[in-house]
Nucleic acid binder design. Structure first.
Lengths: 148, 148
DNA sequence: TAGGTACTGATACTAAGTATCATTAGATAC
DNA sequence: GTATCTAATGATACTTAGTATCAGTACCTA
């Protein structure tokens, strides 16, 4: 469990979120939720599906799509531009740092980011609606590339 | 032609870039380069391929891949997380603002962005290697959504 | 203008994700 | 506890994005 500048990032509890939205608590969804809650790194839906051979591939995709809509899972871009997913432990607007070696994802919020976006809005033609920021890091548990 | 804080964004000239890298100036590459140079919005390789029926689909993909490697084209994420491409008019490190209505892409550099990244580096566990910032805007030529 | 080879286009393939549809299983009512 | 309605499932086929293969073509240089 990680805290940046006073923000505590708590463990996720996915099934109740889905149930509150009116979705049924089915066995496949519970299995997916349980697996996701243990994950601290980014993943692809395909890899998730392989880890859950008892659940149909289409159901894994459907459930991840639901969790995306509900805001419990985020889609993020890796350094090479491909797509990955990650569990959102904070409910509100945030950004990600992704370890380029192990795929570990941390979420962060920083007032400075939002101030920057406001400042850029003034310089950029048109109205800024949304933004996306990803930091690519070598996390504390991975060796920074000494062989290079 | 656009200028943000004194940085002039010039028109691209793709074929010479490829030739300097030792790639041959073939007819299909010239056709792709010519089409791209006229584009001011983001595009998919598939759409490009449709606009160039005389060029094989594989060749369009191969050429875009080359231009990506050379840095003449960037891959960027749309607001919904899907991938698009855009011509890079500035050679060096920059970010994009993408119009969510017409797909027009503007490039920008801002010292404030790089200062922010440095500041975040200090707060975030691990070593920051790279970053990605995309702004989603409604550009000056599109009506901001009054019907909403 | 001949020749080596980088490049092309057709095709088949992989990977990521969606649509369809008959069947199954949660939730609620009885 | 059982019936029932309907959301959800899984199998399958499909779409979209991108890559691999390979015989044939067309650049470039000598």
């Amino acid at each position: 469990m990680l805290s940046i500048k006073g923000l505590v990032i708590s463990d996720a509890n996915l099934m109740p979120v889905l149930e509150e939205m009116g979705y049924r608590a089915t066995a496949p969804r519970k299995a997916i939720a349980k697996l996701l809650e243990q994950k601290h790194d980014s993943f692809t839906v395909e890899s998730l599906s392989e880890e859950l051979p008892s659940v149909g591939r289409a159901t894994v995709y459907r459930t991840i799509k639901l969790l995306l809509e509900v805001g419990a899972v985020c889609k993020l871009a890796t350094i090479d531009g491909s797509q990955m997913y990650s569990l959102c432990r904070v409910g509100h607007h945030h950004h990600h740092s992704v370890c380029i070696q192990c795929g570990a994802v941390e979420e962060f919020r920083a007032a400075a980011v939002e101030r920057l976006i406001s400042a850029l809005s003034a310089e950029i033609p048109g109205e800024v609606i949304d933004h996306r920021i990803e930091l690519y890091v070598v996390c504390g548990f991975c060796p920074s590339d000494g062989g290079k």
